[in-house]
Lab assay of single mutants.
Amino acid sequence: DESNKPILLPNESQSFERSVQLLDQIPSYDTHKIAVLYVGEGQSNSELAILSNEHGSYRYTEFLTGLGRLIELKDCQPDKVYLGGLDVCGEDGQFTYCWHDDIMQAVFHIATLMPTKDVDKHRCDKKRHLGNDFVSIVYNDSGEDFKLGTIKGQFNFVHVIVTPLDYECNLVSLQCRKDMEGLVDTSVAKIVSDRNLPFVARQMALHANMASQVHHSRSNPTDIYPSKWIARLRHIKRLRQRICEEAAYSNPSLPLVHPPSHSKAPAQTPAEPTPGYEVGQRKRLISSVEDFTE
């Protein structure tokens, strides 16, 4: 099969070098950035008060330690540790928490760990991170309901609301924008112990962030949302095809390698009803078989 044979790379090609550099910018793992907010007593309706908090309760602090690993920003190499735009020179604080497994990295933009500057009256330095995160974990210690939209931002799609209760338990629920209701189930609340709260809140936030990324990708319907490693695979396959075309153009005697095509017509299947918005969006999480067989 010609399409699977190794090909020689061009010795000097600026377009090839640019493509390789672009490939280096696509990590081999999925990345997520999640905002974390603490809401104190009497702050449920005040964005400024929430963003001005420099610490929270003892249970909130224990919750943070379970979310991930504490890292010092100045020691991080952005090409190895995903920071979601946090500055490593102290502009966004000294520490944050991050978490990773074999296929993804997540960083938490924690408002109480970011510096509260006197010259920044409206807390814009914090909002440029927190307001651009799709998902926020809100530790609501106010005793009042927290409403979506209290923290203004164009991309605040989903809130994971943590409400501490007695007996070391917590109520965990989801809020989302109306255009996200087909992807996020907000109907079920959970009672979770303090011990298990970081794991549950983190998983709910990661799932909500993946759904938000799919939702946000609708602005470019021709580019369905893939995982990062599938995006790398697609980029490599496009690069291979372009090299083959350039080689055939410079030397017409060489065969032009095309991806294999299936001449056999697909079997006719009964027509199915058109899937609704929710089903269609969830299918976009699934990769096409052509990603692996071309």
Rank of each mutant, 00 (worst) to 15 (best):
141 D>S: 01
172 V>W: 00
219 S>Q: 13
119 V>K: 11
29 Y>P: 05
241 Q>E: 14
230 I>Y: 04
141 D>M: 01
216 H>Y: 15
34 I>T: 01
257 V>R: 12
13 S>H: 11
171 L>A: 05
244 C>S: 10
132 N>R: 14
18 R>L: 10
264 K>C: 11
165 L>Q: 05
267 A>L: 07
55 H>E: 09
74 K>V: 10
231 A>T: 13
183 L>I: 11
93 G>Y: 07
13 S>E: 11
284 R>K: 14
235 H>L: 12
162 V>D: 00
262 H>Y: 08
217 S>R: 05
275 P>C: 10
233 L>F: 07
209 N>F: 02
149 G>H: 08
77 Q>N: 15
145 D>A: 06
174 L>S: 03
62 E>W: 02
114 M>N: 07
89 C>A: 11
140 N>W: 00
1 D>Y: 12
129 H>T: 12
140 N>R: 00
23 L>E: 12
97 Y>N: 03
116 T>H: 08
120 D>V: 06
267 A>P: 08
7 I>N: 04
187 S>P: 06
227 S>M: 14
77 Q>W: 06
173 S>D: 04
150 T>A: 05
286 I>L: 09
36 V>I: 04
7 I>H: 06
253 S>C: 08
133 D>V: 08
211 A>N: 02
108 F>D: 01
233 L>P: 14
41 E>D: 06
96 T>I: 10
23 L>A: 08
67 L>M: 02
283 K>E: 15
92 D>Y: 07
59 R>H: 00
10 P>G: 10
224 I>M: 08
129 H>R: 09
188 V>D: 09
152 K>L: 07
222 T>G: 06
14 Q>A: 12
214 V>F: 09
209 N>Q: 03
109 H>C: 03
24 D>R: 04
280 G>L: 12
149 G>T: 11
154 Q>F: 13
203 Q>W: 04
29 Y>H: 06
223 D>H: 06
74 K>N: 12
18 R>K: 11
229 W>F: 04
92 D>V: 08
139 Y>W: 02
294 E>V: 06
161 I>M: 07
125 D>W: 08
11 N>P: 10
278 E>I: 06
198 P>L: 01
22 L>K: 15
117 K>D: 09
128 R>Q: 11
1 D>I: 14
197 L>I: 03
23 L>D: 10
262 H>M: 14
248 A>E: 09
162 V>Y: 01
27 P>C: 06
163 T>F: 02
6 P>S: 10
193 S>K: 02
24 D>A: 05
267 A>R: 07
288 S>E: 13
151 I>C: 08
118 D>I: 13
223 D>E: 09
36 V>G: 00
32 H>C: 15
289 V>S: 13
95 F>T: 04
292 F>W: 10
97 Y>W: 04
61 T>R: 15
85 G>W: 02
278 E>R: 08
19 S>H: 15
159 H>R: 03
288 S>D: 13
258 H>R: 08
179 D>T: 04
269 T>E: 11
64 L>K: 01
164 P>R: 00
191 I>P: 03
35 A>L: 05
226 P>W: 02
252 P>Y: 10
183 L>S: 05
251 N>W: 11
99 W>G: 03
194 D>W: 00
194 D>V: 00
179 D>M: 04
259 P>E: 14
8 L>Q: 14
67 L>W: 00
76 C>K: 09
224 I>H: 10
289 V>E: 13
256 L>A: 15
246 E>L: 08
204 M>C: 05
238 R>T: 13
144 E>A: 07
90 G>K: 08
285 L>P: 14
275 P>T: 09
11 N>D: 14
38 Y>M: 00
253 S>Y: 10
29 Y>R: 13
86 L>V: 13
149 G>R: 04
48 L>H: 13
168 E>M: 05
74 K>I: 05
202 R>W: 03
144 E>M: 08
96 T>Q: 09
184 V>R: 02
222 T>H: 09
213 Q>F: 06
55 H>L: 07
234 R>M: 07
205 A>V: 01
168 E>K: 05
150 T>Y: 03
251 N>S: 12
253 S>W: 07
201 A>S: 04
145 D>P: 08
183 L>G: 02
101 D>A: 01
76 C>I: 11
181 E>W: 04
292 F>V: 13
237 K>T: 14
150 T>Q: 03
157 F>H: 10
88 V>E: 08
44 S>A: 13
121 K>L: 13
123 R>S: 10
52 S>T: 07
158 V>N: 01
11 N>R: 08
204 M>S: 04
137 I>V: 03
39 V>K: 01
227 S>R: 08
152 K>Q: 15
26 I>H: 03
10 P>Y: 06
189 A>L: 14
67 L>Q: 00
157 F>S: 10
211 A>L: 07
157 F>R: 06
86 L>Q: 15
159 H>G: 15
281 Q>W: 07
51 L>H: 03
85 G>T: 05
29 Y>Q: 05
62 E>K: 10
266 P>H: 09
140 N>A: 00
211 A>C: 05
27 P>I: 04
130 L>R: 03
33 K>D: 14
260 P>N: 14
163 T>R: 04
219 S>L: 11
159 H>S: 15
60 Y>V: 00
9 L>H: 10
109 H>Y: 05
174 L>F: 07
228 K>G: 14
215 H>E: 11
213 Q>E: 06
102 D>I: 04
166 D>T: 03
232 R>Y: 09
1 D>T: 11
286 I>M: 14
8 L>F: 12
212 S>R: 01
251 N>H: 11
204 M>L: 04
239 L>P: 06
16 F>W: 13
222 T>Y: 06
198 P>C: 02
186 T>Y: 04
106 A>I: 14
59 R>E: 00
195 R>P: 05
169 C>S: 13
44 S>N: 08
115 P>I: 03
156 N>I: 08
268 Q>W: 09
197 L>M: 05
131 G>D: 15
226 P>M: 05
234 R>E: 12
140 N>P: 00
18 R>I: 05
19 S>M: 15
13 S>F: 08
89 C>T: 14
294 E>M: 08
269 T>V: 12
95 F>L: 03
271 A>G: 09
36 V>D: 00
18 R>M: 08
204 M>W: 04
180 M>K: 04
244 C>N: 09
175 Q>S: 06
191 I>F: 04
246 E>P: 07
193 S>G: 04
125 D>R: 15
143 G>K: 07
208 A>H: 03
235 H>G: 07
154 Q>Y: 12
260 P>E: 15
194 D>E: 03
219 S>C: 12
67 L>P: 00
259 P>L: 13
135 V>Q: 00
107 V>G: 02
279 V>R: 13
255 P>L: 05
183 L>Y: 15
11 N>F: 06
52 S>C: 06
196 N>D: 02
281 Q>T: 13
27 P>L: 04
224 I>Q: 07
125 D>Q: 15
125 D>G: 15
43 Q>D: 02
150 T>I: 08
76 C>E: 08
115 P>K: 07
195 R>W: 04
28 S>T: 13
103 I>T: 15
203 Q>G: 03
136 S>V: 14
202 R>H: 02
57 S>D: 01
93 G>Q: 10
37 L>F: 04
64 L>D: 01
170 N>Y: 01
199 F>R: 02
210 M>V: 06
27 P>K: 05
